[in-house]
C-alpha cells in the first residue's frame, strides 16, 4: 500500500481514516524505506543480477553472451580456482582456531583484577586492530624483510638464519597469519565483554564447592561464554574468506600462487581480465560456500552453545 492509494480510498481526511496501529505501521515503513530501497538496489538486485551474469561471457564492452553453465564447469578444470580455494581454506584452518584461543587468552589477561597498569595494557592490545589497512601490511612487510627486517635481524643475533617469510612459497601464508594475529585485540575485546557478563556469584559458588581457578574456568567461564565464542567463530570465518588487502599488498598472491586467496583471484578475473561472467560465477560459489558454512555452524550451535534463560531476554 502506498500513501497514494490510501489517499484515494479516503475522500476527506486520509490520515483519520487509518487506525492508530495502521498509522504506526505506515510510519514504520516510511522510516525504513531507505533501507528497503538500499536492500533492493545494493544487495538483492545485484545478487540476482550476478546470477544472470554468471551464465554469460562478458567483458563489459560488448553485449553479454549467454553460455549456460560453462563458467561453472570451467571452474572444475581451473587449476587457480582450486589453488585459491585451497589457500583460503588452509588459512581459515590456521587462523580461526588461533584467533579464538589467542583472543580468549588475551581477554582473560585483560580481565585480571587489581592490576594498576591495566588501562594502558588494554589500550596497547587493542590499538593495532584499529589500524587495519595498507599501512598495517606495509609495516609487516618491513618486519619480515629477509635480510634487514627486524625479525630476521633479531634471529641472526642469536645465530638463527630466519626464513625468507613473504618471499618463500613455503612460509608466505604463515607470515600473513602471524601478521593478522597482530589484530587479535579486536577479538579479545569481544571476549572481554563476554567474560564480564558471567555472574560473579557463580564463581563464588564454585569456589565454595572447592573448585580452583582451573576448574572454575572449565565449568563456569567456558560454558557461559559459548555464545561469545560462537559469535566470534562466525565472524572470524566470514572474515578469513574475505581476505584481500594483505594478500594483494604484501604478496599479490605469490610467490608461486602460495597466497592466492579466493577474493584476490575473483578480483583478478573481474578487474584485471574483465571476465565479468566468470567472476560473477566465482562470487556465487563463494556465496554458497559461506552460506553452507554459516548454516553448518548455526546448526552445530544447538549442540555446544549454552543460552542462559535470563541472558536470552
Amino acid at each position: 500500500m502506498t500513501p497514494e492509494t490510501l489517499a484515494a480510498n479516503a475522500p476527506a481526511h486520509p490520515a483519520r481514516r487509518l487506525s492508530l496501529a495502521g498509522r504506526e505501521a505506515l510510519t514504520f515503513y516510511l522510516c525504513i524505506s531507505p533501507w528497503l530501497v538500499g536492500l533492493l538496489v545494493f544487495t538483492l538486485g545485484p545478487i540476482a543480477a550476478s546470477f544472470w551474469y554468471s551464465l554469460t561471457r562478458w567483458d563489459l564492452l560488448s553485449a553479454p553472451q549467454f553460455i549456460g553453465l560453462r563458467n561453472y564447469t570451467h571452474m572444475v578444470d581451473d587449476r587457480l580456482f582450486w589453488q585459491s580455494l585451497r589457500v583460503t581454506l588452509h588459512y581459515t584452518l590456521l587462523y580461526v582456531p588461533t584467533e579464538l584461543i589467542g583472543g580468549l587468552i588475551l581477554a582473560l589477561l585483560m580481565n585480571q583484577r587489581g592490576i594498576r597498569s591495566m588501562r594502558v595494557v588494554r589500550t596497547i592490545y587493542y590499538l593495532p586492530s584499529v589500524l587495519s589497512g595498507v599501512a598495517f601490511v606495509v609495516v609487516w612487510m618491513w618486519l619480515f624483510h629477509p635480510t634487514a627486517g627486524l625479525i630476521n635481524g633479531t634471529l641472526a643475533r642469536v645465530g638463527i638464519v630466519g626464513p625468507r617469510w613473504l618471499a618463500d612459497p613455503n612460509t608466505a601464508l604463515y607470515a600473513l597469519w602471524i601478521m593478522s594475529l597482530w589484530g587479535l585485540g579486536r577479538t579479545a575485546v569481544i571476549f572481554l565483554a563476554g567474560l564480564k557478563q558471567v555472574p560473579q556469584p557463580l564463581y563464588e559458588a564454585a569456589s565454595m564447592d572447592g573448585a580452583g581457578a582451573w576448574r572454575s574456568f572449565w565449568s563456569v567461564t567456558l560454558p557461559l561464554i559459548t555464545p561469545t565464542i560462537f559469535f566470534n567463530l562466525v565472524l572470524s570465518i566470514i572474515a578469513t574468506f574475505q581476505t584481500f588487502t594483505s594478500a594483494f599488498v604484501a604478496t599479490n598472491g605469490g610467490p608461486l600462487d602460495s597466497t592466492l586467496f579466493y577474493v584476490l583471484y575473483l578480483y583478478r578475473q573481474a578487474f584485471q581480465y574483465f571476465a565479468m561472467g566468470y567472476a560473477a560465477a566465482l562470487a556465487w560459489v563463494l556465496f554458497v560456500i559461506i552460506l553452507l558454512l554459516t548454516l553448518l555452524i548455526l546448526r552445530s550451535g544447538t549442540w555446544w552453545v549454552f543460552y542462559d534463560g535470563e541472558a536470552a531476554q
Binding site: F42, P46, S50, L266, Y267, A270, F271, A279, L286, F287
Partner: peptide, 14 residues
C-alpha cells in the same frame, strides 16, 4: 553476514 565480494561484480556493473 553477506560478504562484500559477493556483490562486488554486479555493483561495479551497476
Amino acid at each position: 553476514m553477506l560478504p562484500y565480494p559477493v556483490t562486488m561484480v554486479p555493483l561495479y556493473v551497476l
